[in-house]
Simulated assay, not measured.
Amino acid sequence: MLTRINQKMALILAVIAGVYLILSYNLPKYPNAIIDADVVPKGLGFLLLFFAILLFLDKKEETEAEKQKRSLSKSNLFVLLAVLAFILVYISLLEVLGFLIMTTLFIFSCSLFLGYKKHLANGIVSVVFSLAIYGLFNYLLRINLPAGIIPF
Rank of each mutant, 00 (worst) to 15 (best):
L2I: 11
T3G: 15
R4Q: 12
M9A: 15
A10M: 09
A10K: 02
L11M: 14
I12F: 15
A14D: 02
G18C: 13
L21V: 10
I22G: 00
I22F: 14
Y25L: 15
N26K: 14
K29S: 11
K29N: 11
A33W: 03
A33N: 10
A33C: 00
I34N: 14
I34W: 09
I35M: 14
I35D: 06
D36F: 03
D38V: 02
V40G: 03
L47M: 15
L47R: 03
F50D: 07
F50W: 07
F51D: 01
A52D: 03
T63F: 07
E64V: 13
K67Q: 12
K69N: 13
L72T: 14
L72R: 07
K74Q: 14
N76I: 04
N76R: 12
L77D: 06
V79I: 13
L80Y: 13
L80P: 00
L84T: 12
A85M: 12
A85P: 03
V89K: 03
V89N: 07
Y90H: 12
G98A: 08
G98Q: 07
M102V: 12
L105N: 01
C110G: 02
C110Y: 01
S111L: 14
L112W: 15
L114E: 08
Y116A: 11
Y116L: 10
N122T: 14
V127R: 05
V128E: 06
V128H: 03
F129M: 07
S130C: 04
L131C: 06
A132H: 03
Y134P: 00
G135F: 13
L136D: 06
F137S: 00
F137H: 02
F137W: 02
Y139N: 14
R142M: 08
G148H: 07
I150S: 05
